[in-house]
């Protein structure tokens, strides 16, 4: 129905049976993910200041080196998964990257020594886990109905129309990774110290949402 949502593919990279393609849209998203991943790589965490209520005392939270290393690793993995999801031209591949983003998001705050944040991360992890069900189910219906998982083939409009339910499932799967109305746990995870890493949590789910909007408009 609508041709070339994100613009004309500028460059197609062949990865066996899967293609990676860059349109003006995906390239914008990819570059943003890349920028923030580089920021994660080169910046050190901030020292979050905490006020003790009821008094005028305050203290800063220090992040130990081992914790910082682990969280930086997870944030970079999250950035790489996001970048992959931005440029992949295959629906199943996209769902895999989405699942990986969910896991790394839990990893980013898993090392934080705050019960509140860890509780939120646990709940978020459960939802991310459950979100893979509609996600993969959506991809499966795509494959079953159209006989193709390639977004470039879907873009051409020659394949059978994708059923609305498959699009809905794909959408719900991505929304489960932390978009509204399932944002409560993610907002609490944001209270963790370590700004450059925590930002990746939100960036990844926003970018995934932006990409899935493009995907459901194809075909």
């Amino acid at each position: 129905m609508i041709n070339l949502i994100g613009g004309v593919p500028l460059y197609v990279l062949e990865f066996g049976d899967e293609l990676v393609y860059f349109t003006p849209y995906t390239i914008t998203l990819f570059l943003l993910a890349l920028t923030f991943t580089v920021l994660v790589l080169i910046s050190r965490p901030e020292k979050q200041v905490d006020i003790a209520f009821g008094g005028d005392a305050y203290r800063t939270k220090e992040i130990s080196v081992s914790e910082m290393r682990f969280r930086r690793f997870m944030a970079i993995a999250c950035g790489l998964a996001t970048m992959g999801a931005m440029v992949t031209g295959d629906i199943f591949n996209f769902t895999l990257f989405t699942a990986m983003v969910g896991i790394t998001n839990v990893g980013i705050v898993a090392a934080v020594k705050s019960l509140h944040v860890q509780d939120a991360a646990y709940q978020y992890g459960l939802v991310a886990l459950a979100a893979t069900v509609p996600l993969f189910a959506g991809a499966a219906i795509y494959a079953a109905v159209t006989g193709s998982l390639s977004m470039i083939e879907l873009m051409k409009g020659t394949l059978p129309a994708v059923p609305l339910i498959a699009k809905g499932m794909l959408m719900l799967g991505v929304i489960g990774e932390g978009m509204a109305p399932f944002y409560a746990a993610k907002a609490e995870m944001f209270r963790a110290p370590g700004a450059p890493y925590v930002i990746m949590c939100s960036l990844s789910s926003l970018l995934l949402f932006l990409r899935v909007v493009e995907i459901v408009m194809l075909g």
């Binding site: 613009g7 849209y25 914008t28 998203l29 943003l32 939100s202 926003l206 970018l207 932006l210 493009e214």
Partner: peptide, 19 residues
């Protein structure tokens, strides 16, 4: 250009706020 890109940037303004 594509309005989708502008709206994507609009959404990503959130990240700026987080940052």
């Amino acid at each position: 250009g594509s309005i989708l890109v502008i709206l994507g940037i609009y959404m990503l303004h959130k990240i700026v706020e987080h940052g």
